[in-house]
Design a protein around this nucleic acid. Structure first.
Lengths: 260, 260
DNA sequence: CACCGGGATCCTGTATGCAACAGGCGAGGA
DNA sequence: TCCTCGCCTGTTGCATACAGGATCCCGGTG
């Protein structure tokens, strides 16, 4: 699966792809944005960026447009783009929404039936994660994060629905909404292992529910599973030093809590 | 509400906006695509389009990129774009997903509390629709479609979640997924009035559930409500003459039913 | 008759020039 | 002193020129 999506032709690309200027610009810009280089509200003027990224205006413009579609930038009235700011509420909703969509994925997987192979791989990942949860070293933690990512990818694959895939892709494009985003920050938080134990229980439950065709259970489990990230969010937001390690942290509006 | 979204700065625009070339290209192209001008798979070469739309390549390219993000076009390996094709399964999933998201909207509205004003407007719309359901003339039908559209917009507004709004926007961009898309085609189908009666019952139930803070009920009602569109889909797909009246109909792959 | 190579053509990606628009700043007048 | 008008600069939107690649066709050859 993973539908490379051309536009987002990020990560993978082990082969010597031509890496068009547009792609280069897109990747650099996204990194720059997530690294907190530009405070929210900053106007992304083209000329300075052209100079900085070493690409001409045309591909840069395209990259900017893509980032707007992704939600990292907002278009200004007079034209041009500015760095978006995310409120707590928005992040909260994004995570909740991820839960809803992954819940739907789990339901689809249960209703339509995941393949033997998919279930086997999920079990495999789950048992790989099991021991990692109890080891406090950072290495294990990163292994866990990777396994977790694969698990969620697998869930989506088992749902067998390109439309759902696309929808989820868009939500995950927002910073913090990804399953791995907030986990990363809690590597050194004492509460982390407890949370992971719970998450692992969800994983096991999901596999069981899907293989038993318990669609409703699978759905609600996946929803609850996403709420783990919500707890992480609260945790991380209260620990500024942890927060600052997380990509995109500077895009959060810590002050404003309600948006109406 | 309706968050004009600059990129999609479509309909509204009563004032004498400058209507940038990009916007013009986007609107024309979308119309052309939905009108079935290009069969699925057609390569959207830039030069012929430049000639046809009367805009230069730069804004055209931007419009193409936007349409790709919306899902109407897919990017080709060698570069460029082609008209996408939609399978029955995809449309099915898109509608199901709309149900899931509108369900979430209804749940949010119930959980977080819609304003008195919003509830009043929903009741107003609902009672406006009531008599229209029983009148078989085409005029009433279109009035109903308009009211229905507003009702769904209102529901989204009551959810008070920009993130959800964005997600739903993306689903609705797909042809046939919109609440009004398929209803339009059934204006002359005998089964239509019955379906509308059911839909109206859902509307009433939604209002009741939201005002009573019955979140779970609101959610499942909205989901079921979307499935009405699913029934319409089957109906319309079986009536070719009706199907052809619907924008974007030619983008459906009628043959292929399963996509794996 | 099939296959392979070369060339021409079409197409896109990229760069840059040009013009219009918005916003800010300063000067002049009330 | 304050308001207003006009200029000037910065910025984007748009158009077009250029170059690299892919594709397709055609002719030649095994």
């Amino acid at each position: 699966m993973a539908a490379p999506d051309k536009t987002t032709k990020a990560a993978g690309a082990a082969d010597g792809e031509p890496t068009s200027q547009t792609t280069r610009a897109l990747l650099s810009l996204r990194d720059l944005l997530l690294s907190g280089e530009f405070p929210p509200g900053t106007r992304m003027s083209e000329l300075p960026l052209v100079e900085r990224l070493g690409v001409s205006r045309t591909p840069l413009r395209l990259a900017l447009a893509t980032l707007q579609h992704e939600g990292l930038l907002e278009s200004l009235d007079g034209g041009g783009y500015a760095v978006r700011q995310f409120t707590r509420d928005e992040i909260h909703d994004a995570i909740e929404l991820r839960g809803v969509l992954e819940g739907t994925a789990a339901r689809f997987a249960a209703e339509r039936g995941a393949t033997k192979d998919q279930l086997a791989r999920m079990r495999q990942l789950s048992s790989e994660m099991d021991p990692l949860v109890h080891r406090p070293d950072v290495d294990s933690f990163w292994q866990y994060v990777e396994c977790n990512r694969e698990f969620h990818e697998l869930l989506l694959e088992a749902a067998n629905s390109p439309v759902l895939e696309r929808a989820l892709e868009r939500i995950l494009a927002l910073p913090f909404a990804s399953p791995s985003a907030l986990v990363q920050g809690q590597a050194d938080l004492p509460e982390s292992w407890e949370i992971l134990v719970i998450a692992q229980d969800h994983h096991r439950g999901l596999i069981e529910a899907i293989s038993n065709r318990q669609a409703a259970r699978a759905e609600s489990l996946a929803r609850e599973h996403a709420r783990v990230a919500m707890r992480n969010l609260e945790l991380v937001l209260d620990n500024r030093h942890v927060l600052e390690q997380i990509p995109g942290a500077s895009l959060i509006n810590l002050a404003e809590h309600s948006k109406d």
